[in-house]
């Protein structure tokens, strides 16, 4: 180390503690976004190519087969229009979940940088909030790209369809918050990855009325959809996009379910983050 002179004022003069106590989550999110920017080209590539592949293969390819056998369409619209809100929601939710799951494993286990954050004025609660916030920023980017692709392919249309974006982000926030808590609670990373990958994400994707109406499935499988935030987001998305029928009570129930999931998730995420950091 060299002996270069360091001018010193001292932290008591330098640091505006009340400001930091209020903005801690933003600083964490800023750091996370800085990490994401290191991967900006692969993130952008995924955000562009993922919807392209899905829309070309399933929306248009399978859609052509479905439409040819069902002249009235699915739920009164083309298969692509039926599928579009579900694909948007699933991409957004999975993107947000990945973006909270991996930083949590990394921060607690792989390079332990949450412990470095926790040695600063940042609180455990703010670290959890910051990770969730950065995950939603990434999800917003992915959602905007996907929405753009849906517009180009004709899956959505009209100004009212812009409401799909906040509704989808709301759904992503609810599930990502729950996953954030789960990731902090389960310290065995292999167990966590298996639970999330095999027991949560894949079943939710397949049994949430994404590719066909949930009502067309056997009753005993429909409950998976009722539990899934993806089904709730898909139902709301279809209502926004092409006027899929939902009663007022049903609409309230969808938002209430996602809202409660968000609040429970955030509560437990903060709890388990703090618990692990101060162990």
């Amino acid at each position: 180390m060299s002996d270069t002179k360091i001018a010193r004022r001292g932290s008591l003069q330098l640091i505006n503690v009340p400001k930091v106590l209020h903005r801690g989550a933003l600083y964490v999110a800023e750091a996370r976004i800085r990490v994401m920017l290191k991967w900006k080209w692969s993130i952008a590539g995924e955000a562009i190519l993922n919807p392209m592949f899905y829309l070309l293969s399933i929306g248009i390819g399978i859609g052509k087969v479905v439409n040819s056998h069902q002249a009235s369409g699915i739920d009164g619209v083309s298969y692509l229009a039926f599928l579009a809100p579900a694909l948007l929601a699933s991409a957004c939710i999975i993107g947000a979940v990945n973006e909270v799951m991996h930083p949590t494993l990394e921060g607690f286990k792989w390079n332990k940088n949450f412990y470095a954050m926790y040695a600063t004025p940042i609180s455990g609660k703010q670290i959890a909030d910051g990770v969730l916030l950065s995950g939603l920023v990434r999800a917003l980017f992915g959602t905007l790209m996907y929405y753009g692709a849906l517009l180009i392919f004709g899956g959505v249309s009209g100004w009212h369809s812009l409401w799909l974006i906040p509704a989808t982000i709301f759904a992503a926030a609810s599930f990502a918050a729950l996953m954030l808590g789960l990731c902090a609670a389960i310290e065995n990373s292999d167990l966590l990855l298996n639970i999330v990958g095999r027991l949560l994400i894949m079943p939710l994707f397949l049994f949430s009325g994404t590719f066909y109406s949930l009502q067309s499935m056997p009753k005993f499988l429909q409950f998976i959809g009722w539990l899934s935030p993806l089904w709730h987001a898909t139902e709301v998305g279809r209502w926004i996009s092409y006027g899929h029928h939902i009663s007022t009570q049903g609409l309230i129930a969808h938002f209430l379910y996602m809202g409660i999931m968000y609040l429970v998730g955030v509560h437990y995420a903060r709890h388990f983050y703090l618990k692990r950091l101060s162990k």
């Binding site: 932290s11 640091i15 400001k19 930091v20 801690g24 600083y27 800023e30 750091a31 800085r34």
Partner: peptide, 12 residues
């Protein structure tokens, strides 16, 4: 960047 983000955690 390590130095930068750490400084930001202190609101600098």
């Amino acid at each position: 960047d390590n130095l930068y983000v750490y400084g930001r955690y202190f609101g600098l």
